[in-house]
């Protein structure tokens, strides 16, 4: 008798376990981003009218995108750690139509606040936890652990498409420059 009861117990347990796994998977999928959210992922920015050293904020996938036409003299004055690299020479800048542009997701890599751009000092300062970046998005002062992230991009003449990869982007990614 007890063998039969054991068997039924195990069978019930196995079926209930399968059901629970299925339900868990369904629950996980319910929380996934919707296909419509994922599909709306491409933004084209026209850079032909951009002025030097002015911060333009665009939107891509709900995130702010920083665009600056970087001037030749983009050295951050009084960088707190003494770093004075000229942002213009930074390999993270993207050349569009002969000009050098800084294009990155405008969210601090610490906890996702939006840093403010101080054009006279050529640097970003995050008000939340005091992080600082130069005009190429390189970190000047912690806590941000890494530079501002460059999104997948494709240059088309004087325009840039965000969300679509290109050989230039892949090259930067391989060199570890995008984030």
């Amino acid at each position: 008798m007890s063998d039969r009861r054991d068997f039924f117990g195990k069978a019930l347990g196995a079926f209930a376990g399968l059901g629970a796994l299925g339900a868990l998977y369904a629950a996980k999928r319910t929380w996934d981003p919707l296909p419509s959210v994922k599909a709306a992922g491409f933004t084209t920015i026209d850079l032909s009218q951009a002025k030097e050293n002015v911060l333009y904020t665009e939107m891509w996938r709900g995130k702010p995108i920083f665009v600056i036409k970087v001037p030749k003299d983009a050295v951050p004055s009084d960088a707190p750690n003494g770093r004075k690299e000229n942002a213009y020479d930074d390999k993270r800048l993207i050349t569009v139509g002969g000009d050098k542009f800084f294009i990155a997701i405008g969210l601090c890599t610490h906890l996702g606040c939006i840093p403010a751009y101080y054009s006279d000092q050529h640097k970003f300062i995050c008000a939340c936890h005091g992080g600082q970046f130069n005009a190429a998005g390189e970190v000047l002062k912690a806590p941000p652990p890494s530079p501002l992230v460059i999104p997948p991009f494709k240059v088309e003449g004087k325009k840039v498409v965000l969300g679509e990869s290109s050989p230039e982007y892949e090259k930067m990614k391989k060199a570890g420059l995008v984030a």
């Binding site: 981003p33 906890l111 652990p145």
Partner: peptide
């Protein structure tokens, strides 16, 4: 909401997928 959900990327582990799963979007929406 942005800052707290970003904590789930667990720093350098960079679990961006987990953060997007919790939000159901790239940003809170």
């Amino acid at each position: 909401g942005m800052v707290i959900t970003n904590l789930f990327s667990l720093g350098s582990l960079d679990f961006q997928g987990l953060v997007e799963w919790i939000r159901g979007d790239y940003v809170p929406g």
